[in-house]
């Protein structure tokens, strides 16, 4: 179980991690990186699945169904476009 101050510690450390990982990134990668971080919050899919797994009744089930559709779109779409962009970055020094 994650609660109280443990949760706060996780939150703080993750926030610093995100900041540090991006801090020295060159401008040329801003668009792919935004797209990449967009993919990473596609992890919302696992949450949407859990919520759907215990949803009961038509209202909850409908909202949860939409949630899973949207989350899957976020994760898969985020991956597809990021990978397409990064695939194109090549150096002039061979090694394609």
């Amino acid at each position: 179980m994650i609660d109280g101050f443990i949760a706060l510690y996780i939150f703080m450390l993750a926030a610093f991690t995100g900041y540090e990982v991006i801090a020295r990134v060159p401008v040329i990668l801003h668009t792919p990186l935004m797209s990449g971080s967009n993919f990473v919050h596609g992890i919302v899919l696992v949450g949407a699945m859990v919520a759907m797994g215990r949803a009961e009744g038509p209202l909850e089930l409908t909202i949860a169904f939409l949630g899973v559709v949207l989350a899957a779109g976020n994760a898969v779409g985020g991956y597809a476009v990021t990978e397409r962009m990064l695939e194109m970055f090549k150096s002039s020094k061979g090694k394609r």
């Binding site: 996780i10 992890i43 919302v44």
Partner: peptide
């Protein structure tokens, strides 16, 4: 996993 990934994107995205 959601807490960590979400927070990392939250702070990285703010910086971006």
């Amino acid at each position: 996993a959601m807490i960590i990934a979400g927070t990392v994107v939250g702070s990285a995205g703010t910086l971006l």
